[in-house]
């Protein structure tokens, strides 16, 4: 075999391996959506999406995931409301105010937070956060609030790391210029740098939403999982992911298909978020 052939073959191999991810995405789409089709056909798309009752033990069974869609949105929103400000402020601290010696410790802490398995978060939430809410606020603690708090902690590393990187990526002239014009250090950071790093920060938020909406195990251990419309943050809530993971083992026939369909709905949410992310990062590179 001569060098030319070898070059050709290797190029082909590299090309093929880069097609694997496209293949994987296509396969995932095909299998999730075709797995969802029978249930959607039998139940009816609108009945499934807008139905408020999920009663696999009824005869005839009822499968509607409307409250769970709302639940997933509420829980992620709660996580964002709590996690994002803390995350961005932490990123500001790490990027601008942090003494060098402390930096190693704190940035390690952030990456450790990212590496802790979700089952650990769930267990922590179940044994400490849920009883804490029951003791000091109202309700039994298994609640939208508990799920949001756990998720807020879980999205912190995503938000912090990406926001910090985008703050650091800014040319130092932004900061120096602002200070030279008489701004205080804090004004330079919050009024000049943060707006300039907007696209990176928004990206971090979108990724955070993705992580929150897709989280399964930890949420299931603290959210209470009742299929109701949570009218207060102290009420129980059920998300799409929890619906899948907790019933998958027990399900058969239409129930099983309905759970795959739940996964498909979640998948559509994720794809929409990805598209949003695509638009945002594109805007970011232009600016």
């Amino acid at each position: 075999m001569n060098t030319k052939q070898l070059e050709k073959i290797s190029k082909a191999l590299f090309f093929i391996s880069s097609l694997v991810s496209i293949g994987a995405v296509l396969l995932i789409c095909i299998f999730i959506f075709s797995g969802a089709a029978p249930a959607l056909g039998k139940i009816g798309i609108f009945k499934f999406l807008l139905g408020t009752q999920w009663k696999p033990n009824n005869d005839p069974q009822k499968f509607g995931i409307f409250y769970m869609i709302i639940g997933s949105i509420y829980v992620s929103a709660g996580a964002i409301v709590m996690g994002v400000p803390i995350g961005i402020l932490s990123a500001v601290f790490l990027a601008k105010f942090c003494p060098k010696k402390l930096y190693v410790l704190l940035s390690q802490a952030v990456s450790l937070l990212a590496g802790i398995p979700s089952i650990v978060y769930g267990f922590f939430g179940m044994m400490l956060i849920v009883p804490f809410i029951a003791e000091h606020f109202s309700g039994n603690g298994n609640s939208l609030l508990a799920a949001s708090v756990v998720l807020a902690i879980m999205i912190l590393p995503t938000v912090i790391t990406i926001s910090e990187n985008s703050l650091r990526a800014l040319p130092s002239s932004y900061y120096e210029g602002a200070v030279a014009l008489g701004a205080t250090k804090e004004e330079a950071v919050f009024k000049v740098m943060l707006p300039a790093a907007k696209s990176g920060i928004v990206t971090s938020v979108v990724l955070g939403i993705g992580r929150a909406i897709g989280e399964t195990i930890a949420v299931g251990m603290v959210a209470g999982n009742s299929n109701i419309l949570p009218v207060s943050i102290f009420k129980s809530v059920r998300t799409l992911t929890v619906n899948i993971v907790s019933e998958m083992g027990y399900a058969s026939d239409l129930h099983y298909d309905a759970l795959i369909a739940t996964g498909a709905v979640l998948f559509v949410f994720i794809l929409l978020l990805n598209m949003l992310l695509g638009v945002l990062t594109k805007g970011g590179t232009k600016a």
Partner: peptide, 20 residues
């Protein structure tokens, strides 16, 4: 297309990977 696919894969939650 490859980049889009990679980004999509990165965003898919583990429960969907499990189902798939």
């Amino acid at each position: 297309a490859i980049r889009l696919a990679t980004e999509t894969l990165a965003g898919i939650p583990s429960i969907i990977y499990g189902l798939f």
